[in-house]
Design a protein around this nucleic acid. Structure first.
Length: 871
RNA sequence: GGGCGGUUAGCUCAGCUGGUUAGAGCAGUUGACUUACAUUCAACAGGCCGGGGGUUCAAUUCCUCCACCGCCCACCA
């Protein structure tokens, strides 16, 4: 086995195992009555996507859980797939077209969609391949796409069902309109960012007294062109008399009335509000209440339209400037105040969105929300970390209707047909399949609604539509509901909440029992990683340079909360993989894999029992950490166990003990067991080594997760070895402190508390140990198995002068330490005299403190003796 | 305006239900070419646990106020 390279080379093994896993199809699960199902569905990445760090984190977490559960014997199905991502993907292809100097309208709907499918075909699987490179053990043959035929049928079915239940309706309302994408957005798709803007104070003259006026304040002065009233609070004394008066809207010369409405806050601005019912949700509501005129002043692309008078054709922002200028010249602009306010931006293209009056389809959310709220309140669905529960409930309890129609072409076409023959388009046909003729007038000239559905209107069905719903089938029966959902907080409203609602509405059951919300990956300055900022670290580059295991391990160990990532952070994982690799090399140089035991080997020696105890304790902690979604903790435990306990101590302690059968067996056994618990975190390196150890055994992922055996966990053994370690460390420490070179052999005097004096053998052992300062050579000589029990108790080690050590230096050191000990002993003794403490503290704490004090006192005594000797 | 999270070593963070001497990684200093690994080994140094007040025998941990940083939500014209 010496031919193994001294450095672990991820590139040599990763693709090999990816192919092997794929060929053997070992991550595929079928319903199995003998096993319990464990299902999770992937948050489907967009087909526009290239793997970024967020994906890497998200999918590593899922993979850890899935591999863990698989090894625990569950029928584990991790459903993979991609999302068509309506607006995002359409934007990408539109950009492509733009390079050819074309718009989508130039090529036409049909051809444009063809291009989108081509794009999907070409790039849609890129991310799937990248997920595989990460090591994701998805049930790949099941891979779904939100626009698959079956899936699309489910989407249509849901629309029709909700329509029948009157939970889907068409309405003319103010929605968020993206002038660049030229489509309606849902409330969630408009991202509000605090923006430094201005509050423009504009004079509106009275009709009968043109020299007098009412002043209104607005952040969007161009919308005044669409004003149809000015509103004041009915209780506002300043304006009470003016209610009902007529004003002349500047620039437009339109007569508008002053109306009274409770909505107006007298304290804000001037207390008088211009009312633009077509371009503001509040004004819209007021417009309805007061039966005002609705004037749309914007083209869909954000230019002012013919209703804007002489500003017709100008872009909204240019129009803003022009309006302000015009008002200025007419002396109707009182002032401009700086004003910070939240401005909505399109979540796909970051263009400022406009509140826009249009006819759209909506889902009535309140009835759907009810069971979804109850489920979380009753703990049927749990959020981890818990605090997200509140965020979820708060949103759900204030839920607004969901605008689901989009004026784009890429997506599920709305299954609604209109009959132009029938009057006023009142007769609409909502149907899962294209109707042949109008049921009212028998006309065959039917037109399908031009719009498509919000992407999220398909993804909210993901946990069951991927299993073939609405068709009843065995897979759905067996794998639904799923277990855990892993996602980022940004997606709670878009997706998580809606999936919960859909789960109850259509399946009558929760879609998952746990929601795990992980942190956001940021750069070291705390900024989100993004292509546009240029601060993104490409996971694929990390895989190339450090390996997928390193990427995974490093991400997870940093994943307690938000992650602040720089390239160097991935060294931990790379180094750890290399450590595992080299430990294996050492072991295989000294023990043959042929001797690998199939069960826990006999362990009589202290070090065997110690490492077994440490392993089982770690196993127990790791298992519980994974089950509690504490992944970084699990990794830390594994890291510490393998590196510090197993490599730094065990492998060193046994170094000249290799001839022992027990040593070989125990060491091989621990190595193999460690590989198992490391496998979910680092599948490639562990798989490679496992294959070297057991070439015939198949994949490590098909092995069972080790069982915690309490009988191996032995606190006494662990504390004995701890003490030994302390002695050894103390000696190394002194060596280093006094710069004792390799060849020098100082005498060592060990000072133990009364009744705990070391025997000659042990003293000799420690002396020899000190000679080298290296435990490796010490093993044989120290004879741990015989001496361990008698080594119990705290020791001080003192090396007297041998012409090497400066006596004054040592005296000072001892003095200082003595003082510290005295201080500690004093405060402890005070404590032990405190009656309250004695009365109220638990007995074991009191006992422990007493023991501590005794130890301090013993130490003090010894120090004094030594100091006396030195003088 | 409402809500949430954070503040622990130079940096990034652990520290679960209060209880030995507050931990780790990185960076730093010192030493080591010890035949698994320099992607290594050994050792050292570095902390009024953001500030005030409270509860308790005991507070980094629980409560409260304050400061600063970050995030989310909201119809801030």
């Amino acid at each position: 086995m010496t031919e193994l390279s001294s450095r672990f080379n991820p590139q040599d093994v990763e693709d090999k195992w990816l192919r092997s896993w794929e060929e053997r199809n070992i991550f595929h699960a079928e319903p199995d009555p003998k096993k319990k199902p464990y299902t999770i569905v992937i948050p489907p990445p967009n087909v526009t996507g290239i793997l970024h760090m967020g994906h890497a984190l998200n999918n590593t977490l899922q993979d850890i859980m899935v591999r863990f559960k698989r090894m625990q014997g569950f029928a584990t199905c991790w459903m993979p797939g991609t999302d068509h991502a309506g607006i995002a993907t359409q934007n990408v292809v539109e950009k492509q077209l733009a390079k050819e100097g074309k718009k989508r309208q130039d090529v036409g709907r049909e051809k444009f969609i063809e291009r989108l499918w081509e794009w999907k075909k070409q790039y849609g699987d890129t991310i799937i391949h990248q997920l595989k490179k990460l090591g994701s053990s998805c049930d790949w043959p099941r891979t779904r796409f939100t626009m698959d035929e079956d899936y699309s049928r489910a989407v249509t079915h849901v629309f029709v069902e909700l329509y029948k239940k009157e939970l889907v309706y068409q309405g003319n309302r103010i929605i968020n309109w993206c002038p660049r994408c030229q489509t309606a957005l849902s409330d969630e798709e408009a991202e509000h960012q605090d923006t430094q803007g201005n509050l423009y104070h504009i004079l509106y003259p009275f009709k009968d007294k043109p020299n007098e006026h009412v002043i209104v304040a607005t952040t969007r002065p161009e919308t005044m062109l669409g004003d149809t009233a000015v509103a004041v609070n009915p209780k506002d004394k300043r304006y009470k008399k003016l209610i009902g008066k007529t004003l002349v809207l500047p620039l437009m010369n339109r007569e508008i009335k002053i109306i009274a409405d409770e909505f107006v806050d007298p304290k804000f601005g001037t207390g008088a509000v211009k009312v633009t019912p077509s371009h503001d949700p509040n004004d819209f509501a007021m417009g309805k209440r007061h039966k005002l005129e609705f004037i749309n002043i914007l083209h869909p692309d954000g230019r002012l339209n013919e209703n804007a008078g002489r500003f017709n054709g100008q872009d909204r922002f240019a129009g803003r400037k022009a309006v302000v200028e015009a008002l200025k010249t007419q002396g109707l602009l009182e002032k401009i105040e700086p004003h910070q306010h939240a401005v909505g931006h399109c979540y796909r293209c970051h263009t400022v969105v406009e509140p826009y009056l249009s006819k759209q389809w909506f889902v009535k959310m309140k009835p759907l929300a009810h069971p979804a709220i109850e489920a979380v309140k009753k703990g049927k669905i749990k959020f981890t970390p818990k605090r997200w529960t509140k965020v979820y409930l708060n949103w759900m309890e204030n839920i607004q209707d969901w605008c689901i129609s989009r004026q784009i072409w890429w997506g599920h076409r709305i299954p609604v047909w209109y009959c132009p023959q029938c009057k006023a388009g009142k007769n609409i046909i909502v149907s899962e399949t294209a109707p042949k003729q109008c049921p009212h007038c028998q006309s065959t000239d039917l037109r399908q609604d031009e719009d498509v559905l919000d992407t999220w209107f398909s993804s909210w069905l993901w946990p069951f539509a991927t299993f073939g719903w609405p068709k009843k089938n065995q897979d759905l029966e067996y794998f639904y509901p799923t277990a855990s959902l892993f996602t980022a907080s940004e997606i709670i409203f878009f997706w998580v909440a809606r999936m919960i609602m859909a789960g109850f509405e259509f399946m009558g059951e929760r879609p998952f029992s746990d929601v795990y919300i992980h942190g956001t990956v940021r750069d070291t300055q705390g900024r989100k990683m993004s292509k546009s900022l240029g601060n993104a670290i490409d996971p694929l580059e990390i895989i190339r340079e450090y390996g997928a295991d390193a990427l995974r391990f490093s991400l997870i160990i940093n994943s307690g909360q938000d992650l602040f990532i720089s390239k160097e952070k991935f060294e931990v994982g790379r180094n750890f993989a290399n450590k595992i690799w080299n430990a294996t090399r050492l072991i295989l140089m000294n023990a043959s894999a042929a001797g690998l035991p199939d069960s826990t080997p006999q362990a009589s020696e202290l070090y065997s029992r110690w490492i077994l105890s440490r392993f089982h304790r770690t196993l127990d902690q790791v298992t519980r950490a994974i089950e509690g979604y504490r992944f970084s903790e699990a990794e830390t435990l594994i890291y510490d166990f393998f590196w510090k306990n197993f490599c730094d101590w065990h492998l060193e302690l046994i170094k000249d003990q290799w001839s022992s059968e027990e040593t070989q067996q125990v060491t091989l056994h621990i190595l193999e067991q460690s590989l198992k618990i490391m496998h979910p975190f680092m599948p490639f390196v562990t798989e490679e080594i496992f294959h070297i150890l057991r070439p015939q055994a198949g994949s490590l992922s098909q092995q069972s997760w080790p069982k915690v055996e309490k009988k191996f966990i032995d606190a006494k053994i662990e504390s004995e070895v701890d003490e030994l370690m302390e002695i050894i460390t103390a000696i190394r420490n002194l060596r280093s402190q006094w710069n004792i070179s390799q060849g020098t052999t100082p005498d060592i005097v060990l000072i133990a508390p009364k009744g705990k004096v070391l025997g000659d053998t042990k003293r000799l052992a420690i002396q020899k140990l000190a000679k080298t300062g290296n435990i490796r050579l010490s093993v044989e000589k120290i004879k741990i198995k015989e001496s361990a029990s008698s080594l119990a108790g705290p020791f001080n080690i003192f090396i007297p002068l041998q012409g090497i050590i400066e006596i004054e230096k040592e005296k000072n050191r001892l003095q200082q330490e003595l003082q510290q000990q005295v201080r500690s002993a004093e405060s402890l003794s005070n404590r032990l005299q405190n009656k309250e403490f004695l009365k109220k503290a638990p007995a074991d704490i009191v006992a422990k403190e007493k023991e501590r004090l005794a130890n301090f006192q013993a130490k003090i005594e010894e120090f004094r003796k030594i100091l006396a000797d030195l003088s």
